[in-house]
Design a protein around this nucleic acid. Structure first.
Lengths: 294, 294
DNA sequence: GACATTAGCTGACTTTAGTCAGCTATTTTT
DNA sequence: AAAAATAGCTGACTAAAGTCAGCTAATGTC
């Protein structure tokens, strides 16, 4: 990475944390200690397990307990026994607490407004767009790709979305049973791999690779959540799968696709895949690709 | 401002302060209390007046004093009497202090690197560009335009830069005495106004308006610092001057320009100025513009 | 030269943030 | 039913952050 880029990033970090940090402190604090405020907002409208709070805020058990007592004294929060587990407790906001969170919301909008108020319409547009870009890319940079069991909750979640999307995008609809009579555990090691890309813990993309013969693998189930497209997640998943295959001794991978999946086809082309002869009779497959590994 | 925009800005604020804040804490702290670190970095390579530090960091005088003592005990900083003012004191880094600031620099680069490491080349480019855009626009939104005395230090600073730039850009060079035999105090109220736009206290643009007759004003000395162009500062200064004139009962303003000043001419056109007949014999003027106010 | 102001310092104090050991009540495991 | 684990609490403590009043020395103002 070149030096001017690093300088730009540092300038950005400095300015943004300063400007927004200072404004946030002045607008949002509301006179409340930061620790208390954090707990208050984390309890949120729906309430929360004390245990969850501890984990999400990474607080010491004793410390959190004291913070909750302080919020209780101020009648912003009530903590009550959990019905399910007599040891656990449940925090939720009182009306006053709710009102304070609402006020925070208003302040937060005011802060956002104050950043753009001095700008003219064109500049606002540019700022909001650039902020969106930064946000998306910073999020993307926090994506972790991981091999999971194809039966895991995250894998199931991705697959459900994937099949639902195919059903919607194919003119003919989509019936997974027809295309893949084999169960999903065909993607469990050592015969295959199922990887999930997670963004802040939430699965946002997936892909699978199964061994066809000693030297050939086949990529399936490549999917990216629509809200996270354009971040290179598909590419990342694909690269991960190829690396896994390569490590396991595969020399080439192949995959099929449907003409309706234009983004995927573009991805394959950019990743070095070339069209090959039909290698299966999947009724939904219209194109077949292959690539040498390593 | 529309709601989705505010939502975008808030999402940006939340993510960026979190992500960068957390990284900054983990990378940079260096085990040093945040307060001490802040002072250390603010003293910086060139040293600083204790008074300035107090102002820039908004610290209590006693508190800062103690922080400096702590840094002195660690032999990171020395504080000595100011030569100019026996009451004031001057802080500067020792070699060890300098080394620590250098180490911070390395860490800071590592932090920047860690943000872009997971991205591919194209995404990095987009991220750095978007960060630049956000930074410039946030800076622009912090600009304050103010009427100042034409003899003030900030006004003088702008004018020096302005004349230097004209001298450089005009083929024929530039001699202010030839163009404006009248002194700069022609722009002092009530006959005129001199405004300066400041960015974090530093003047970055200026402009002046003088009364020609009961209903006519003339705009002069419109200048923007080259490093701050493209932020709409010229527009902002121009609008401020027009508003001042309007408030003072002027019905129209006029101005002249030189063909070499293409950005200025573009600005005039966009701000609704139209070319008029030559109204003066300034040797450097090649174009004349006018606009009705109110 | 008297008086006010400025710059910085020290002592005494409070609040916030955080840690750790040990306790009780409840649930899970064996 | 006993033992182990879990969830949360309290007491005792520390470090960092910040505030305030009052002091001294130097400088500026009339």
């Amino acid at each position: 990475m070149s030096d001017p880029d690093l300088r730009q990033i540092r300038a950005f970090n400095r300015l943004v944390t300063q400007r927004i940090g200072v404004l946030q402190a002045s607008y949002l604090g509301q006179g409340r200690p930061f620790g208390e405020a954090r707990v208050l907002f984390e309890v949120g409208r729906d309430g929360a397990d004390v245990r969850d709070l501890r984990q999400r805020l990474e607080l010491d058990s004793g410390y959190l307990s004291r913070l909750l007592r302080a919020l209780e004294r101020q009648e912003l929060v009530v903590v009550e026994k959990s019905a399910a587990d007599g040891r656990a407790r449940l925090a939720r906001l009182t009306d006053r607490g709710q009102a304070e969170v609402d006020a925070y919301d208003v302040q937060s909008n005011r802060l956002a407004q104050s950043l753009i108020d001095p700008l003219d319409e064109r500049q606002r547009r540019r700022l909001v767009e650039a902020m969106g870009e930064v946000e998306r890319l910073l999020r993307a940079s926090a994506v972790a790709v991981e091999v999971v069991s194809p039966g895991s909750a995250d894998a199931r979640w991705c697959l459900d979305r994937y099949f639902a999307e195919l059903a919607q995008r194919f003119d003919s609809g989509y019936d997974p049973a027809q295309a893949a009579p084999a169960p999903e555990d065909q993607f469990a090691p050592p015969k295959g791999w199922f990887v999930v890309a997670r963004l802040e813990g939430r699965p946002v993309a997936c892909g699978a690779l199964k061994r066809v013969d000693a030297e050939t693998g086949e990529i399936k189930r490549l999917w990216t959540d629509p809200t996270s497209r354009g971040l290179g997640l598909g590419r990342k998943v694909l690269t991960t799968l190829e690396a896994l295959g390569c490590e396991a001794g595969l020399r080439r991978v192949r995959l099929d696709s449907n003409a309706a999946l234009t983004e995927a086809i573009g991805l394959y082309a950019k990743a070095g895949y070339e069209e090959v002869e039909r290698f299966n009779d999947d009724p939904y497959a219209q194109m077949w690709f292959g690539k040498a590994l390593g």
